[in-house]
Design a protein around this nucleic acid. Sequence first.
DNA 1: CATAGCTTTCAGTAAAGACTGAAAGTAGGG
DNA 2: CCCTACTTTCAGTCTTTACTGAAAGCTATG
Lengths: 166, 166
Amino acid sequence: MQLKEGKERFIEAWGALGSSWGITRTMAQIHALLLVSTVPLSSDDVMKQLQISRGNVNTNMRMLVEWTLVHKKLIPGERKEFFVAEKEMSKVVKSIIIARRKRELEPMLRLLDELTEVGGDNDEAEGFRSVISDLKLYSNKADKALDALIKVDSNWFFSTFLSFIK
Amino acid sequence: MQLKEGKERFIEAWGALGSSWGITRTMAQIHALLLVSTVPLSSDDVMKQLQISRGNVNTNMRMLVEWTLVHKKLIPGERKEFFVAEKEMSKVVKSIIIARRKRELEPMLRLLDELTEVGGDNDEAEGFRSVISDLKLYSNKADKALDALIKVDSNWFFSTFLSFIK
DNA sequence: CATAGCTTTCAGTAAAGACTGAAAGTAGGG
DNA sequence: CCCTACTTTCAGTCTTTACTGAAAGCTATG
């Protein structure tokens, strides 16, 4: 396969995959484009390559920067902003875990906390509290596990984890 | 808080959370409804309680059964089908991990396999292959870790994992 | 301190995704 | 083997979410 074709397929497929990860096609495509670019790109470069509007690039780029998957890069003599993707995969993985934990787990923990205070001493209320508290238990475990995962160096974690579990 | 209010809040919030987990509001709401119900429910019960159409219930219920979060339950003397949610949380967690791995990780592994064969011996092609192979490395690690997680008893895993990492 | 060059915002529009409901399909009971 | 009670399907519609593009907002430079 040729490099050009490979890049195109990667950008397209990464975009499609994005949806199943809960991020927009475009955000994922911009990320892919920057990941396989050897040079920093400006908004105009991205607009041109992906055929999307300035506003769209701006919004999605801001999210990528927020997730720390992309950084602004100033080029001396240029007034435009340029962008580069973080290419060290342990950092990429870490950023994704942090962002997803925040989106997917935190709201759940908040909800469950609120619902433990349901009253009543019949079987039905008992059942409800039991479901909620079990959910809470597992959510907390997941939360702590992810927290540990974030704090340690990813390489260390994965290799140790795997040898341990095997 | 009253039980009725608690259930309602749970169903509504679980639905909202669903979107951030990449499942539809309705599928999550049906799941929530069944989780906090002490008796099996029929399609009609669900239609009535959530104010949604028969087709919608049918489609989403099928997905819940596919994810093994819900089981059909036959009640003697009734021709209708009834449904109950799996309430053991270790099983629920396991089902969710399996389904998400399939949706989110498998397509990625397939894509990356395809892209390792990109040719060229300049720096650019080298960089591309490096990004792809790093991604592949981490995806495989995540895949194996999840596989291990699925295979062991969830309780064992979490407690051992946590004491290990702490 | 005015202007050019760039970035951000956001109301309106387009695209994607979910839901409805009626019609077709299926199976137990008589 | 037909009727009735249910389940499934899917074309059309609605809702939600993402994108566009033009206008407003910045900020370096002369």
